[in-house]
Amino acid sequence: MNGLTSSAKPAGAGLSLGKDLLGLELLSREQIQLILDTAEPFKAVSERAIKKVPTLRGKTIVNLFYEASTRTRVSFEFAEKRLSADTVNIAASGSSVEKGENLVDTARNLEAMRIDMVVIRHPSSGAAKFLAERIPSNVINAGDGWHEHPTQALLDLLSIRDKLGSLEGVKVCICGDILHSRVARSNIWGLLKMGAEVGVCGPKSLLPRGVESLGAHVFSHIEEAIAWADVLNVLRLQLERMQGGYIPSLGEYNRVFGITEERLENAPKELVVLHPGPMNRGVEIDSKVADGPHSVILHQVTNGVAVRMAILYLLAGGTAERASLHGAKDEIGEVG
């Protein structure tokens, strides 16, 4: 033995995500890192003349959307198609769901047609987990109630990392309706695990009780949040949920919490502004900010496809037994 051996193993080698992606609360820092790193080479696939690789050839994926969505559903569909999977979209309206079929029956019927993965968006918190425990297919949570929206948070993390080089020590303030926001919850989990500092800012009526206990700084004035933060993640004011008297009026909300050009100009440093879309221009964010130099909003959309390709790639064929938080034993051989 001469002590020579090829030692350079890439970071993330041997790590698995298991069977499902349900939320960032359940992922380790290493697993989040793996997803973000894997997204990098997938960005380039979408820049090729032929935007397609054969990786998921022969896999069937169902996009099961019980809530309206354009961006997330289309983003998943592009990701699936660019990996050569066969995809079917099911929207609750116009499907057997309207006739009263329950979630498990719908899923079991799909299983009977031999599917491999399900992407689910559902108004009830915990719907993705409920489904994942009942079918052998890989399940990806595309948003469940107020609970989590892991792929959105992952593309947010990637966009921040692209802009600032790292997430470690970055101060991110999530602004707006935190209470009803699955995007906020997933972001808080993900950012804290990756070593970022998290703040939240919004009307008291829209901040969940006990948000400090998750490890977030709470700001009641947007000016304080702007003075503190490196990044603002501006959430959509969910107009459909504003009947409950949470805010006096949209105009008032904009006056007190709106991200305006003037407020950013008074900030001590250059801020990066994210928004998960769809935007209410002139309410939580002004057009000049949304379309201005601080905004990475369209970059987020581009990154969304790459992140979802990475997740589909990493999950495909994964089983619960193969889940490993910190690296698995089975080695990946060279193919020669």
Binding site: P41, G317, S324
Partner: peptide
């Protein structure tokens, strides 16, 4: 992403840049 054994292996290989 073009490997013929992705269906059968456990943790996915790390993807590098093309």
């Amino acid at each position: 992403l073009y490997r013929d054994d992705l269906q059968t292996i456990g943790p996915k290989p790390v993807v590098a840049h093309t």
